[in-house]
């Protein structure tokens, strides 16, 4: 058994990367979600809507663009799951949490900027995603997802 592993260094490297990818990836994801949930609770009072909104004259003191963006990378383990998914089809569950984290983090960064500048509300929220590293499932390619959130922050007159 040991001899078999010694004779196939490729397999050993693969297994090490897989274990490392799973351990590090899970840890990073857990920490990120804890941080996201904490900041979401803190900023829950700042309303974000996708509607355009219209206000009576004199109600709005200032309006400006706010944006937040984030890039989240896949890990070795998630990539293996996605490659296997490519054989059978179906939901790529391994990537769902990546996109979810990227979107929520982007919105949070946007909200943080708006909050810092004293906005009471963000209107017209738009979300966009982009992939960085086009062939994420190919060898020697790092796949990651970028999410960008932008909207119009409004500061109301007291």
């Amino acid at each position: 058994m040991v001899e078999f592993f010694l004779q196939s260094p490729d397999l050993v490297i693969f297994l090490v990367l897989l274990t490392l990818g799973y351990a590090a990836g899970s840890l990073a994801e857990k920490r990120h979600y804890r941080s996201i949930e904490k900041r979401e609770r803190e900023l829950v009072r700042l309303a974000v809507v996708t509607a355009e909104g219209s206000f009576p004259p004199g109600r709005v003191r200032q309006a400006f663009l706010v944006s937040g963006s984030t890039v989240v990378s896949i890990d070795y383990f998630k990539r293996l799951l996605a490659i296997l998914r490519n054989i059978f089809g179906g939901r790529v569950k391994a990537y769902e949490s990546l996109v979810d984290r990227a979107r929520r983090e982007a919105i949070l960064r946007m909200k943080a900027e708006a909050h810092q500048r004293g906005a009471g509300m963000i209107l017209n929220l738009r979300l966009e995603t982009a992939t960085i590293g086009r062939n994420a499932n190919r060898k020697k390619q790092v796949g990651s997802v970028e999410a960008i959130a932008y909207g119009t922050a409004v500061v109301f007159n007291k």
Binding site: Y22, S26, E37, E40, R41, V44, R45, A47, F77, K78, L80, L81, L84, R85, I87, F88, R91, K93, A94, E96, S97, V99, D100
Partner: peptide
Amino acid sequence: FTPRLPDENVNVSKTHPLAELAWLLGGL
């Protein structure tokens, strides 16, 4: 407007990644 957070995240599947790996490897 009532500020509150959603009870659960509907955008991420609840399946454990290792369980999914086992299913996919089994299929393979």
